[in-house]
């Protein structure tokens, strides 16, 4: 849900000339800060302070127990550059983000187009498509672990039912397939959100323009490409940000289904951070990995905000 952005304030014509505001500006200002204070205090202590601390911790070799944290400069980052597992996790994250975003986008857009005219049963479709979105990750994880189970899962039995029995395998236990198997489960759970956003956006598409294009002889694909897509651009941007940000912080489904295995084939930056910092007590190093995650998330978010601002102009 990390998509709220600062939009530039509309011009405030006559705002500060209202008589009451002029009467006691100091009083209003003080009370304004008092309103912000409780949230800011909690936020500063539990979010901002740890954020700063993570930079400091990444420069130490702390193990979580020693009374003194030894400063080792950029030692952790030097180790990071030579850590093949780190690069693998980063690579997995990129696959996850690119493939997952493309897949979720394509399916949700297709479904949204199919219900564009609000056919009979629209509410039922929307209710069901959105349902995985509201469920805890643990439930999605278990349901899909069962689907993939070689012993009794739907997938393998279905494959042998249609004569593709040779394809069946323990999907989550196979290093070549595990990452994609978990990704499919994760995409399945996020399609609903992208779908409702697209549905809402399509509802606002100008029908007259479409009719005009049809009269002018534009084919279905041309109408989609040149009339619908441009009008959807802000929804597309929004869904992209949502999916990208979700993609970089992917943790829950992976942790529940594979814990980063088998053979680190589903290790992502977030799971690797958790493993180093909390399971191996390599706190300084874990903080260094998490810092990479921070920088990547910030770069992606800022890039998209920029893009969006340019689009608005």
């Amino acid at each position: 849900m990390a998509t709220t952005m600062i939009r530039s304030r509309p011009p405030l014509a006559g705002r500060s000339t209202a008589p009451a505001a002029r009467r006691r500006p100091g009083d209003r200002r003080v009370s304004g800060y008092l309103f912000v204070l409780p949230a800011l205090a909690v936020y500063a202590l539990f979010i901002l302070y740890p954020l700063v601390q993570s930079v400091y911790l990444s420069l130490t070799d702390w193990d979580g127990a020693k009374p003194h944290k030894t400063f080792i400069g950029l030692g952790n980052f030097d180790r990071l550059v030579h850590d093949t597992l780190f690069w693998r996790a980063l690579w997995h994250n990129l696959i996850w983000v690119v493939l997952g975003t493309a897949l979720a986008m394509a399916v949700s857009l297709l479904l949204a187009m199919l219900v564009w005219s609000r056919p009979r049963g629209f509410t039922v479709f929307r209710t069901v498509y959105f349902m995985p979105q509201i469920l805890p990750a643990i439930i999605v994880g278990i349901v899909w672990s069962w689907i993939y189970s070689p012993a009794f899962g739907i997938l393998d039995r279905g494959l042998s039912a249609v004569g593709l029995g040779s394809w069946s395998r323990g999907w989550l236990g196979d290093p070549d397939f595990a990452l994609y198997a978990v990704l499919v489960a994760s995409v399945w759970a996020t399609i609903g959100l992208a779908f409702v956003i697209f549905t809402a956006a399509l509802h606002n598409v100008d029908q007259d323009l479409l009719d005009a294009a049809r009269v002018d002889g534009a084919g279905a694909w041309q109408r989609f490409r040149h009339v619908v897509v441009p009008q959807l651009s802000s929804a597309v941007t929004l869904v992209t940000v949502l999916l990208l940000v979700h993609g970089f912080q992917a943790f829950d489904h992976v942790w529940i289904m594979t814990k980063g295995g088998p053979d680190n084939s589903t290790q992502l930056l977030a799971t690797y951070t958790y493993q180093k910092a909390f399971m191996e007590n390599d706190v300084g190093y874990g903080a260094a990995i998490s810092l990479v995650l921070t920088v990547l998330s910030l770069v992606v978010s800022l890039a998209v905000v920029r893009l969006r601002e340019r689009g608005d102009r």
């Binding site: 709220t4 500063a44 979010i47 740890p50 930056l269 910092a277």
Partner: peptide, 24 residues
């Protein structure tokens, strides 16, 4: 600046702060 600070919290994932937050 206040908005910027809050915005930061929207842009970074929980995993970015979980290590120090745990010890806090």
């Amino acid at each position: 600046y206040l908005l910027g600070l809050f915005l930061l919290g929207i842009m970074i994932p929980f995993q970015s702060i979980m290590v120090p937050q745990y010890y806090l």
